[in-house]
């Protein structure tokens, strides 16, 4: 039973890594966002194979559905054209990406070494369904839900205020 799920985990993880790498290296912003949607959808498959179906659904609905559509609308509002692509090519050429890539790779190698050499035993075979998550969310984590709602309310007020057109003198 766990054979196909294992294979799905590794395939989806590979798709997530490749599409994320493509997303951060595109010159056109819309292409980067489309690759990022693929990355989020494959991470949703990873969540499902880890036994977290509720979070997989929310990843599709909120991350790939709401947040990325917000990004796409902003890109459409900004009217980015070929001038920006040429400028982006100029910024991204040469050794601009080499230093950050090497430093991040060193940090990643350290993290992988610590994970592999540490005491992280056990498998991801347990399924935690929506019922358990909901009971814990509205039980011991109630204060967190309230704080998150206040954070979102503050974000709504802030975004509305910032995007208001000031009156032209």
């Amino acid at each position: 039973m766990s054979g196909p799920m294992e294979a799905a985990f590794y395939v989806a993880a590979a798709v997530a890594v490749v599409s994320t790498l493509l997303a951060i290296s595109r010159l056109v912003a819309v292409h980067a966002l489309l690759y990022l949607i693929v990355s989020f959808l494959s991470v949703a498959v990873v969540f499902y194979t880890m036994g977290a179906p509720l979070v997989a659904t929310l990843e599709v609905i909120i991350y790939a559905g709401a947040i990325l559509v917000l990004f796409l609308f902003v890109v459409m509002m900004l009217n980015l054209g070929t001038r920006d692509r040429d400028q982006e090519r100029q910024w991204f050429s040469g050794a601009a990406w080499l230093g950050p890539a090497i430093l991040s790779a060193i940090l990643l190698a350290e993290v992988i070494y610590l994970i592999v050499s540490g005491a992280t035993t056990g498998g991801l075979s347990a399924t935690v369904g929506p019922k358990e998550v909901a009971l814990a969310l509205y039980g011991p984590y109630m204060i967190g839900v309230e704080l998150a709602s206040m954070l979102l309310l503050g974000a709504v007020v802030g975004a509305t205020h910032l995007s208001k057109q000031e009156a032209r003198p």
Partner: peptide
Amino acid sequence: MNAVPMSHGLILGG
């Protein structure tokens, strides 16, 4: 039970 090891999930996050 041969499931995905936990370290592989953590490594993907990393």
